[in-house]
Computed example of a mutant assay.
Amino acid sequence: MSLEKSIKDVISKKLEDGTIEKLIAEQLENGIKNALKDLLGSYGDVTKVIEKQVKSVMVPYLENYDYSEYITKLDSVLVDVLQSSALENKKMLENFKNLMIPDEMKTIKVTELFERWKKYVEENVETDGLEVCYDDEPSYQYVDVRFEVEYNEERSWSSMKHAVLVFECEHDEKMNYEIRIHTWPKYDKGEWTIERNSIQDINSLRHLDEFSIFLMKLNQNGTKLILDTDSDGDEVKPDKEPEATFS
């Protein structure tokens, strides 16, 4: 029996017992499955059609939806997150929250900004090395603070004026601030712009103190500074209380 005849006999028998039809059906089924997988996959034609139709319905609905009732819940949500977050993330979220709260201040006087900084010093000044007063209740001695506006020497042709606003605490240099300000006398009518760098990385919020956040907020809200005086000084009482000692 020749090889060709043997092959024909085998094929004939498989046709008769339905084996070939079964194999063809299996491969056809696999082909359909693969075709559907390609059509319905991430980049398939059917998927693209479905995605287009979903977008046409959902996007306009989401754009027109009133989210005001959820926005009002932002504060409570942040509080919950702050209470359950690690200390490092807590600082970042606190600063983010403070930065996002709207502020309607159009202008602020330098004396008002000085008062704000004095409060920051009261809450954060280092008390090591300060004497303790025992008049009524034990308290740390007052620390001297002051501010001064240092004007730059401008070129005769310049239409802009620059200055540096210096807040200084003699006892604790970490409280000190240099704030760059500028103005166009022709257009600003005595109002100055506070120059502060914007946040490039949200993670950097965790390293900023509350006074830095306040200055950044003034800058992003376009609040103008009015120099109602060029310098002033005062004394600040630290909020921190001395630990009780027993002799």
Rank of each mutant, 00 (worst) to 15 (best):
N124V: 01
Y140L: 09
D209V: 10
C169K: 07
E210H: 13
N197P: 11
W192R: 08
I101V: 13
T127C: 12
K91D: 05
L215P: 04
D135H: 01
T223S: 10
A163I: 15
S159N: 13
N176C: 05
Y187I: 13
I194Y: 08
W184K: 14
L208H: 12
H162V: 07
Y120S: 12
H207Q: 11
Y151D: 13
L113I: 02
Q200I: 02
E191P: 00
F96W: 02
T183W: 12
E104V: 01
E154C: 04
K161W: 06
L87W: 07
V143K: 10
M160L: 15
N219L: 00
E173A: 13
W157L: 05
P138A: 11
A86K: 03
V121Y: 09
D209W: 08
E94L: 10
G222W: 09
M216Y: 00
N98V: 01
Y151Q: 14
H182N: 15
E154S: 06
Y151P: 03
N203R: 06
K97N: 06
E173I: 14
I194E: 09
R155H: 09
W157N: 09
G129T: 11
V110E: 12
G222K: 12
K174V: 08
L99W: 01
K109L: 11
N152H: 13
N219T: 08
N124M: 01
E115W: 01
I101F: 06
D103F: 02
Y134N: 08
M175K: 06
E122D: 06
I199T: 05
L99Y: 02
K217T: 01
Q200V: 03
E210D: 15
R180E: 12
Y120V: 00
H182R: 15
M160R: 14
I213T: 07
V121I: 14
G190K: 09
C169M: 11
E137T: 11
M105C: 01
K109V: 02
Y120M: 10
P185C: 06
T193R: 03
Q200F: 10
K90L: 08
E126F: 11
P138V: 12
V166P: 04
C169P: 13
